[in-house]
Design a protein around this nucleic acid. Sequence first.
DNA 1: CCTAATTCAACCTG
DNA 2: CCAGGTTGAATTAG
Length: 251
Amino acid sequence: MEKFAVHGGMKRSSTEDARSPRKKIKLESDERMEEEEEEFSHPVPWSKIEAEGLDCDYAQLFSKEEADHLFKQLEEEVAYSTEEEAKVQVFGKVYNIPRKQATYGDEGLTYTYSGVKRSACPWTPTLEYIRDAVTKTTGQTFNFVLVNRYKDGRDHIGEHRDDEKELDPLCPIASVSLGAARDFIFRHRDARGKQSRRQIEPVKLELAHGSLLLMNSPTNTFWYHSLPARKKVSQPRINLTFRRILLDRKK
DNA sequence: CCTAATTCAACCTG
DNA sequence: CCAGGTTGAATTAG
């Protein structure tokens, strides 16, 4: 079978990379974090992940220490939907989703997940901090984040595309991983099903603690992705997918 | 008529 | 042969 895609390779940032140890994160409860100007560009080595119709960039955004701290903060701050609220109905059957979810974002934004519309909670300090770190390294801005928490290797998500109508199709989706490393698998839409006319290998990654995966257009048009169960994983993982949601044109 | 996310079973691999 | 991974089929209402 195919090896996992190689990390490290070409870089994307213009600067001469080199891991400058980044400043420690301090999240004092009432202190608004002001980022200094010198923090504006974070030079981070990127690896490019490419296939037909697939275009992703992967980087280690946070050091282990920073990522540990952020994980802890999120464990305290994030309020997930209850099992009751998160039930999903497909083909007439009701399921508990095998993970926990929360939605945060700018005021008034709503997110629809398999028919259920929920409004975004206001940003927490840690989520804002991470959002801004992503913006600094990518130049992209986001108004929404979907938080998924996988309590161990049995929690997972099946193959899907992030093709919700309300998403800005040209804005990349930025996926930040904290906690246990998990496999992440892309499959081309034409390579699925019994008599798929095309034989396209899946693209497999491992998403590390503190990493950032940018999924650029048109990846989501052609490729499904999943986070499969991994029985040997016993620790939790929190995934943040930052998105740009188009504002509803109110009539 | 079209669209849904998950479970499960069957097959594959080490 | 077992455990675990991978794939595809099944599943129903609005």
